[in-house]
Design a binder for these strands. Structure first.
Length: 663
DNA sequence: ATACTTTTAATC
DNA sequence: ATTAAAAGTATT
């Protein structure tokens, strides 16, 4: 019986290198395992610790060993401790930070409370399951399901891409794959981008599988969240549907991990460790002999390159995808093209004729105006903490920084020269809502706005749009996500090239996905039409999206990535050095580059930069990018270089952030 | 000599 | 990170 517990204390310190050994008193030896949570004395404090190993003896002198104060009732599964160790190494982070991802929700905060309150009894919900029955699959769906069933039967880990156009019935494949996993006695995880935007998929899982489904979403109160975690941990629920953090669901013997809308940017975690839930899902599936199923109408080039695909080319209702028209805005004034205005008027007229008729308009820019300038002296209102222009939010009467959240009252006059001539440049969703309501809302054709600024929440706006007979939904990229309304006759993208102008090698892929996803919202219950306003009508992403040519776009994209040695033909690691003074950040970045040059950047790798980034939250930033053929040696080399440079005192006040496979 | 501030070292 | 001992600096 091991008497030593190797414990990782849950602190965020980078310099701390555990694990630390504790002597287990007799009464704890039975119950403590890898994954157990202990409260331990640590320095002068008490901290929560996770047991990462057990041993018979310790290197540490007997008299220095302390005993844990107490053990918590429920720990995490052993396999998640191993997964956390993998994440710490893979993303250049610490074990403690990686472990905090797999702990029960609120674990760190509950430490101070002594005895946990008894939980409310589980609420009842529709039991579903057996009676619901699975609908008949199309030939394409059956062909896609077949290799998944075979892998599950053989307990073989396998990765599959489900490349299916919008409306082709991907969810039914997920459901039947889940059913198969359950029938083999195994659990399943279903990752979705954001529950509020995809209520339909959650509903279908709950309906089909009843109480064995645990749903994690942002609206749950902490106690409910913990309740769902506990149902999974104790095996009462075997399926978890949730956002990226659900990849850490405490399910034993996972047989299937689904990643819906696998192209979605929300799978990348912003914050240390900067993990990518898709890669973590692949790793977890590999470790537990599970099937990884990645689904999308617009998969990433990386995924297409690496993962064998099943294709769903037809919609289940057998309707064709709506025709997409490119509306050339060169030489036109800003705003709506006459063709677009007429198309919206046509939708409103169709609504009058009887059934509902709806339109969706996408403009990927929040607020009223992009930026303000003084007509007299040219002053531009910018963020005091970041080097970006402030956006006018007219309804709230303030200017906001979209990077740090800074707000200030909207100015009536120039604070430099006193002039009252303040020019508003560009239009965002708030202004568009105002304009379109003025033009089209006659009482029977309401305009709804959906973006990150709406106060009632995305779900509420979508519900109101659904309930309306006719109307228009305008908003940012949120309007292109997984919801499904049958009466949408028209989908419009304004300034479609806006995303193309981002200095990012994924800009084309993002633009293609955005247009294709939005096009998928139109014509689900009848004829549909899609308009794309752009000043770049020849751009590859736009031309292919208009032709519904995913394969053609991906082929070109992969060719371009290969030529430029971008992922998937290399791995990128981004290191950002931030400090109050630009000079300090630059010196640190140069030192880091020096360390990488001196000790190697891991295999065949090149280091680009340092380059300046715009100031953010009052900190000047410099970025280095490592482009490597092999990921692991490069990550290790970067990790060593960062701790060497960050460890010294000469770069005090500089923070280092490492992003492996940045999105 | 004494009260502050900064540096350094340790956390089983 | 947090803490406290150690070392350094300014103040009576």
């Amino acid at each position: 019986m091991p008497s030593i517990a190797q414990v990782e204390p849950m602190t965020t310190a980078r310099a701390l290198r555990g694990p630390f050994d504790y002597r287990l008193p007799e009464e704890l030896r039975e119950g403590v395992a890898v994954g157990s949570m202990l409260v331990v004395p640590f320095g002068r404090r008490q901290v929560l610790g996770v047991v990462v190993g057990l041993a018979e003896s310790s290197e540490v002198a007997e008299e220095k060993l302390l005993a844990p104060l107490r053990a918590l009732e429920l720990g995490v599964p052993m396999e998640l401790v191993a997964l956390a160790e993998w994440i710490a190494a893979e993303y250049c982070s610490t074990i403690a930070r990686a472990l905090s991802l797999v702990l029960p929700p609120g674990a760190a905060r509950r430490l101070s409370g002594r005895k946990r309150r008894e939980l409310a009894p589980p609420r009842h919900r529709s039991s579903g399951s057996a009676s619901a029955g699975s609908p008949e699959l199309t030939g394409e769906q059956r062909a896609a399901l077949e290799p998944i069933l075979a892998a599950l039967a053989a307990r073989r880990s396998e990765r599959r891409l489900l490349h299916g156009v919008t409306g082709s019935g991907k969810t039914e494949v997920y459901l039947q794959a889940t059913e198969a996993a359950l029938s083999h006695g195994r659990g399943a995880i279903v990752l979705v981008p954001e529950i509020a935007l995809t209520p339909q998929i959650v509903g279908r899982f709950s309906e089909r599988f009843g109480e064995t489904v645990a749903v994690l979403h942002s609206q749950l109160r902490p106690a409910q969240r913990y309740g769902e975690w506990r149902r999974l941990r104790e095996g009462h629920a075997r399926v978890c549907v949730g956002p990226r953090s659900a990849v850490f669901a405490p399910i034993e013997d996972v047989g299937l991990i689904v990643v819906d809308e696998e192209h979605d940017a929300s799978y990348k975690h912003e914050g240390d460790p900067r993990y990518d839930a898709r890669d973590v899902a692949a790793e977890r599936a590999g470790r537990s002999g599970a099937v990884l199923l990645l689904g999308s109408a617009t998969p990433r080039a990386e995924t297409v390159h690496r993962v064998p695909a099943s294709v769903l080319a037809r919609r289940v209702d057998a309707r064709p995808l709506p025709p997409v028209e490119i509306v050339d805005m060169r030489g036109e004034s800003d705003g709506l093209h006459p063709v677009t205005a007429q198309a919206l008027a046509d939708v409103r007229a169709a609504g009058w004729a009887g059934h509902g008729a709806k339109a969706i308009v996408l403009l990927n820019r929040r607020g009223w105006s992009n930026f303000l300038s003084c007509r007299s002296c040219g002053r531009v209102w910018s963020c005091p903490e970041c080097d970006v222009a402030l956006v006018l939010h007219r309804h709230g009467g303030f200017l906001a920084c979209h990077h740090c959240g800074h707000r200030e009252p909207a100015p009536a006059r120039c604070s430099d020269c006193g002039s009252t001539g303040v020019a508003r440049h560009g239009a965002g969703t708030e202004r568009l809502e105002h304009e379109l309501a003025r033009l089209f809302d006659d009482g029977s054709f309401p305009v709804f706005r959906l973006d990150a600024d709406v106060l009632d929440g995305a779900g509420e706006v979508l519900r109101r749009f659904e309930e309306a007979d006719s109307g228009m939904l305008i908003g940012t990229q949120m309007v292109a996500k997984g919801h499904d309304f049958p009466d949408v006759r028209l989908a419009v993208v304004l300034d479609a090239d806006a995303t193309l102008r981002f200095p990012d090698f994924r800009a084309e892929e993002r633009t293609f996905a955005l247009i294709a996803q939005l096009a998928g919202r139109a014509g689900r219950g009848g004829a549909g039409r899609v308009l794309v306003q752009t000043i770049a009508p020849q751009a590859r992403a736009i031309v292919h999206a208009a032709a519904h040519d995913s394969d053609g776009f991906l082929a070109g994209e992969l060719e371009r990535r290969r030529a430029l040695r971008y992922p998937p033909f290399s791995h990128l690691i981004r290191i950002v050095c931030a400090a109050e003074l630009a000079e300090a950040a630059r010196t640190a970045a140069l030192a880091l580059r020096g360390a990488l040059a001196q000790h190697g950047a891991g295999g065949e790798a090149s280091v680009l930069g340092p380059a300046s980034l715009f100031r953010l939250r009052g900190r000047e930033r410099q970025v280095l990018v490592v482009k490597a053929n092999e990921r692991r040696p490069a990550v290790e080399a970067v990790g060593r270089a960062v701790s060497r440079v960050a460890g010294g005192r000469e770069h005090a006040g500089v923070s280092f952030s490492v992003d492996v496979d940045p999105q």
